[in-house]
């Protein structure tokens, strides 16, 4: 009777987990997670399911089985549910904590601990003959295999970290003229760019001065920059796959959207070789554009990049400076 119940419990767990993982998990992980259709609700449902069938059917699974289920569900959470995926070093730490928790649960009183130990002891002393044979052969084989793996020479390419947006210098010299980056403005930003969202480059270039600059900037971009930064300005140009670091994606909110135009001016003018060491200047394919473009062409390209992506450059503390003035009042 008891054995039957344990078997039911095992079957319900395996079948349930299978159904959950292969059928429900894809449903609960759509591209745009909602308040209900998300991975964490899915996990809660899984836990509720496991508790529910045990209570409703009054299965009372043995302690050892309970403990392994708890441990396994925890492992599943860190392995498959938690998002974004955590690195294995962190997962080991989390699983250590989880194992300690499980162990505390087992050892809450001597009776449960004894109950938990029972199948283990029975396996060791040979009451469960088959289990003992399997475990006692499998474990040494595993140990041998692990030794083999650790002795086999393996090489992974070294991981290299780099600073994507290094601190800019105070001044920069371009085409013989020295610029102080603090407060430096784009001379072609003569108007609010959002007004020109529905304007046509080339067609309206004669009518609107701003669009003329955008057209000129875009022309330079599509003669020089798109090979790496892409026709869509998303860093996926036709040569992008070659270079490491990969070209910047201007559509992403982490690049030009959070930078000042003066920073871009410095980056474009000085290129890869102008980077400090923490940004790996030796492998950046970004040309020092002062070698190929005029100063005004650099500014026009920057103007174009903001117009095309719809981002606004970060400004020079207009908010904070106006704020401090208000305080004085």
């Amino acid at each position: 009777m008891n054995n039957n119940k344990s078997l039911t419990s095992v079957i319900l767990l395996l079948v349930g987990c299978g159904v959950f993982h292969y059928l429900l998990f894809p449903i609960f992980t759509p591209k745009e997670p909602g308040w209900f259709l998300n991975r964490y609700v899915y996990f809660l449902l899984l836990v509720v399911y496991i508790i529910a069938y045990n209570i409703i059917l009054n299965l009372k699974p043995p302690m050892f089985f309970k403990a392994t289920t708890v441990w396994g569900v925890g492992y599943y959470f860190y392995d498959a549910v938690l998002h974004p995926h955590i690195p294995w070093t962190l997962r080991i730490t989390y699983m250590m904590l989880w194992s300690i928790g499980t162990f505390l649960y087992i050892t809450q009183d001597p009776v449960t601990f004894k109950e938990f130990r029972k199948p283990i002891v029975k396996t060791i002393v040979g009451d469960y003959r088959m289990a003992r044979i399997v475990v006692f052969i499998a474990l040494p084989v595993l140990v041998g295999f692990a030794t083999y793996q650790s002795l086999l020479p393996k090489f992974e390419e070294p991981v290299e970290l780099r600073t994507v947006h290094p601190a800019p210098p105070a001044t920069t010299k371009v085409h013989g003229k020295s610029y102080t980056l603090e407060g430096l403005q784009n001379p072609f930003r003569i108007d609010e760019q959002d007004k020109y969202k529905d304007s046509f480059p080339f067609l309206d270039a004669d009518k609107q001065e701003y669009v003329k600059y955008i057209t000129e900037g875009g022309t330079i971009f599509f003669q020089n920059c798109h090979y790496c930064h892409g026709d869509q300005l998303n860093g996926l140009g036709m040569f992008a796959h070659v270079f490491n670091p990969t070209p910047a994606n201007f559509v992403d909110s982490g690049t030009i959207a959070m930078l000042r135009e003066s920073f871009l001016f410095w980056r474009v003018a000085k290129g890869g070789p102008g980077l400090p060491n923490e940004s790996t200047p030796w492998s950046s394919a970004m040309p020092p554009w002062e070698e190929h473009l005029k100063t005004e062409e650099i500014w026009k390209v920057i103007l174009f990049e903001y117009w095309y992506t719809g981002w606004h450059p970060r400004t020079f503390d207009e908010e904070s400076s106006s704020g401090s003035e208000k305080k004085k009042e």
Binding site: P140, Y148, L151, L152, S283
Partner: peptide, 28 residues
């Protein structure tokens, strides 16, 4: 191309042939 890495792989150590059985037997 950009920078790649190359490595002259070492030989597979002889210990790979006798260490795993030794460890397995010890564990047994």
């Amino acid at each position: 191309s950009t920078w790649y890495y190359t490595i002259l792989e070492p030989t597979i150590p002889d210990s790979i042939y006798y260490m795993p059985p030794i460890m397995a037997v010890t564990f047994l």
